[in-house]
Structures are given as structure tokens and as C-alpha cells.
């Protein structure tokens, strides 16, 4: 395929075809063929025929582009293939790993930069960590405050009668079919329960709170405006060991009940449920004293 001598009907580019004898065609007496890579510009186009020279150049390109199996073409193709291969390999290499092709001083510079950047990032990490700790502490504080508030709300709800409660306590039943026991006696029983440390008290379906009152009415005993039907079933949450002796004290509350014509039984229970609740209305006139003045 690669012919050593160009065939006459396929003139090589450096042998212009005879039917195009242009005046600026290189003369054969050029002393030395210039290096292809370093060919000095031989003032290629003298002024007389610039258009003809341009078309000749284009024709030269066209001739070179025409596929012919000359030695020059094959050689140029081979070298161009080598060049394309090398370019692609180098580009890929450059893209894939930048570090392995670098020189020592460049690597040292990059290492310095990376070290500096690492220090900056570590400083940043320390700062962020301390911020995170502060935030975590803050949220802990808020959570503790919320838990304390919830607990306080539960305690005060029980004390105010707003929440049902359960716990160890006593059940006290006062039978008084003839409604002979006056309100004062029942109030004594309530006071005795409170003195003995009862924390939540209920009479029948009525929750007893700090504002509970017991009065006599023509129809019977009224508690907080509700007529109380005998038998009176008390449920009190507190220490039974304290409440029962207090009630049974000689001359105490239950003795007075018996003296006024009622019968009473009192039993200790491990679990007493005080499930009656009362709506607590917000105070209309009283407001809390501000903390600064209170302190």
C-alpha cells in the first residue's frame, strides 16, 4: 500500500501538478528543504496574484484531504493518530488524577494549602461544637422547666380539685337515714380529715376543695349548693394509719356523729380513687404579686 515512489498520476502535495504553473510556486532551486516544523515564512504570496495564491492554497488543502495511499498521507495519518491518542490520554490523565503528575514543589504547596485548610476547618468544627453544646444545654433547660411546670400543674390540679386522683386512703360511710346529722358535724369530719393529712376528699359525687362549705338547709345538708343524700360516702386520699385513729379519737369526729344519731364505718384502702372534679375559675380580683416585690 505504501509505495516508496509516488505514482505519477497521484502527485504528492509538494509536487504541484503541472497544469497549475503558478508564478509563486516554489522554485526547485530552494537550497534546503526547511524543517516542516520550523519552516520560515518564505513570503509565500507576492503581490501580483493574491487571489490565485489563495485558491491555490485551498486546492493544496483539498489535494491533501483527498484520500490517497501515498507514503506521505499514511505517515501523516500515523503521526496524527499518535497525537490524537496522546492528547486523549493526557486529557484523561489530567482529569482523573491531578496529583500524580505534579512536581514536588507543587505537591508541597498543595500540602501546605490542605494543612492550612484543615486547621481552619478544625477551628470551625470546635466553634460549631461549642455552639451545639450551648444549644443542647438551652434545650435541656427548657425541657426541665417544662417538666417542672407540668408536674406543678398536676400537683395544683389535685389540690384545687381540677384533676382526678388516686392513692392509698380511707372510705368512710356515714349512714343517717333520718337526716339527723347536722352540717356542723359533717364539717367537723371534713376538718378532721384535713387535719389528718387527707390530700383529696370527695363526698358522694362532690369534690371537696379549700372553698367547700357545708350548710344546713330545710331539706337536709347542702355541700357547695348541692343537696347531699345520705348515706354520705367519703373518700379521702391520705395515710390511713393517721386518718383512721384521728377519726376514731374518743370525743372526736366520729364520736360526735354517733352522738348526733348517725352510724359510721371507716375502712382503709390501698387504692382510693377520687374521680369527681371541679372546674376552677380563674380568680377575678386576686393577681399574683410580681416576683420582684414578693422577693
Amino acid at each position: 500500500m505504501t509505495s516508496e515512489q509516488p505514482t505519477p498520476e497521484q502527485p504528492t502535495p509538494e509536487q504541484p501538478t503541472p497544469e497549475q504553473p503558478t508564478p509563486e510556486q516554489p522554485t526547485p532551486d530552494v537550497p534546503d528543504v526547511p524543517d516542516a516544523g520550523t519552516a520560515p515564512a518564505p513570503a509565500p504570496a507576492p503581490a501580483p496574484a493574491p487571489a490565485a495564491s489563495t485558491s491555490r492554497s485551498w486546492r493544496a488543502i483539498g489535494r491533501a484531504l483527498a484520500p490517497r495511499a501515498t507514503r506521505a498521507q499514511v505517515l501523516a495519518g500515523l503521526l496524527c493518530a499518535l497525537l490524537g491518542f496522546a492528547i486523549v490520554v493526557q486529557v484523561q490523565q489530567n482529569r482523573s488524577d491531578g496529583l500524580s503528575s505534579l512536581r514536588q514543589d507543587e505537591l508541597v504547596r498543595i500540602l501546605d494549602e490542605v494543612t492550612q485548610r484543615t486547621e481552619e476547618l478544625e477551628d470551625q468544627a470546635v466553634e460549631l461544637r461549642s455552639q451545639r453544646a450551648e444549644l443542647a444545654t438551652g434545650s435541656d433547660t427548657r425541657r426541665a422547666a417544662r417538666e417542672a411546670a407540668t408536674e406543678r400543674a398536676a400537683q395544683q390540679g389535685i389540690l384545687a380539685g381540677r384533676l382526678p386522683a388516686e392513692g392509698p386512703g380511707v372510705e368512710l360511710t356515714i349512714r343517717d337515714a333520718d337526716r339527723q346529722v347536722p352540717a356542723l358535724v359533717l364539717y367537723n369530719v371534713l376538718e378532721e380529715l384535713r387535719n389528718a393529712g387527707a390530700e383529696a376528699v370527695q363526698i358522694n359525687d362532690l369534690r371537696v376543695t379549700a372553698s367547700t362549705y357545708v350548710v344546713d338547709t330545710p331539706d337536709g345538708v347542702s355541700v357547695d349548693g348541692t343537696l347531699l343524700e345520705p348515706p354520705y360516702r367519703w373518700r379521702a386520699i391520705g395515710d390511713p394509719e393517721v386518718i383512721i385513729p384521728a377519726l376514731n379519737m374518743p370525743g372526736g369526729a366520729l364520736a360526735v356523729v354517733r352522738g348526733s344519731g348517725g352510724e359510721s364505718t371507716v375502712e382503709a384502702r390501698t387504692t382510693v380513687t377520687v374521680d369527681a372534679v371541679r372546674e376552677v375559675e380563674p380568680p377575678q380580683f386576686a393577681t399574683p404579686v410580681p416576683a420582684a416585690e414578693a422577693g
Binding site: 509538494e14 504541484p16 516542516a36 516544523g37 493544496a60 505517515l75
Partner: peptide, 22 residues
């Protein structure tokens, strides 16, 4: 070298041997 060869082609003094060597 490739651009030099292209220029030599246009100058009319392209030589494959010179191109290869250069």
C-alpha cells in the same frame, strides 16, 4: 510539528520525511 507540517504543505514544500523527523 503538526502545524508546521500544515504550513509547509501550504507553502508547497511539504516533505513526509522532514515531517516525520521533525
Amino acid at each position: 510539528a503538526l502545524f508546521g507540517g500544515l504550513r509547509a504543505l501550504l507553502d508547497g514544500n511539504f516533505d513526509d520525511r522532514v515531517f516525520l523527523v521533525s
